[in-house]
Write a protein that binds this DNA or RNA. Structure first.
Lengths: 105, 105
DNA sequence: TTGACAGGCAACCAATCAGTTACATATTAG
DNA sequence: CTAATATGTAACTGATTGGTTGCCTGTCAA
């Protein structure tokens, strides 16, 4: 929930990857999320717990399975409240210019 | 430079505070940045080194002083390349709606 | 030239972290 | 009911982290 928890949760590449995978396909089980990751199930569960702590992931029990869902609100909060603090307009203009240049290729 | 270095640099509240202070007033010396922080000069220097590593801060020697400057590019990169990945349009619309509602108070 | 000031460097320490192994519990399929 | 499956819990470990203290170097002012 706290800004600090979100930043800290995002600091780990494995956790960002988990968010990526949930964004790709929401509602995955712990088992699903383990697949292809070079890590034990318990390690993945710990990462998910940290993401839950930061309110970036929520879950729903379904029988013996636990379905995980990404929550985009904290990410957006940081985008709106923190990044915008740092002179965003000028940089957004730069970025749009860059995009325009790329599109004109 | 790497996305990972940026996320990890931003994970610490003291470092985010240092960025805040540099954004408020750019070109501060190590001594300036220490003022008011409950930390030794060496600790602050370490934080600044991590911010430099992530390319979030650069510096210029001036006599015996070291002037520090914030670099907004990596923050903007994350905003553009990473946050936008997560369904930004819908959330931006929500945020603007919220802002409109707040302004109508 | 000498002392004070600004910063650099390195060793050390406690706490946190990312990951493991081992075992326990709960649910579903047969 | 029982075995397999899905997840939970907990103790432990090595590495990293955030911070310290102590000392060294470089620069400026009197």
């Amino acid at each position: 929930m706290s800004e600090d928890a979100v930043f800290r949760a995002l600091a780990d590449a494995s956790r960002r990857q988990l968010l990526d995978r949930l964004h790709e396909r929401n509602g995955q089980t712990l088992g699903d999320l383990c697949r292809g990751l070079d890590m034990t199930r318990q390690a993945v569960a710990k990462h998910l717990a940290i993401l839950e702590e930061a309110n970036l992931v929520s879950w729903k029990r379904q029988g013996r399975e636990k379905l995980h869902f990404i929550n985009l609100v904290p990410i957006n909060d940081i985008a709106e409240r923190w990044i915008n603090k740092f002179d965003r307009p000028r940089l957004r203009a730069l970025s749009q210019l860059k995009q325009a240049l790329e599109e004109s290729d």
